[in-house]
Amino acid sequence: MNELFTTNETAEILGISPVAVANLLRDKKLPGIKKRGDDGIDRWFIRREDVALYCAGLAIFNMLQHKARIRGQAVEEGVPL
């Protein structure tokens, strides 16, 4: 299945704002497809698989941060993805 989500739908799935999704797209941290609508306006769409991969990567990063904290290691704050 090659389902495409809008930036608003992706934001809802990720629990972030549509502006944050736009920033992820701009920074190439989340791949997207830009399509021009019948109204002549370009809009971003994100494949379901790419949203799932982003979520998986974020979960792994959070797990590694948690393990590092437990071991008393220095942990860089923020989301590098």
Rank of each mutant, 00 (worst) to 15 (best):
K28S: 10
M1G: 14
L24D: 01
V75S: 03
I46F: 06
F5P: 01
F61G: 00
R69Q: 14
T7K: 11
R69E: 12
I70H: 02
K34C: 03
E76I: 14
I16H: 03
K67P: 00
D38Y: 05
T6M: 07
E49Y: 04
C55W: 01
C55S: 12
R69C: 00
A20S: 14
I70W: 01
P80F: 09
E12Q: 15
M63D: 08
L25V: 14
A22D: 12
R69P: 00
S17H: 07
L64D: 02
F5N: 10
V79C: 13
F45C: 04
V19D: 06
D50Q: 08
G40N: 12
R36V: 15
I13V: 15
I13M: 13
D27N: 13
K34M: 10
I16V: 15
G32P: 01
D27Q: 13
D39T: 14
E49F: 04
D38P: 05
Q73G: 00
T7P: 05
M63C: 04
A11R: 11
A74W: 07
E49L: 08
I41E: 10
E9L: 07
L14E: 07
C55A: 12
G72N: 06
F5M: 08
F5K: 07
K29I: 00
V19L: 12
D27R: 15
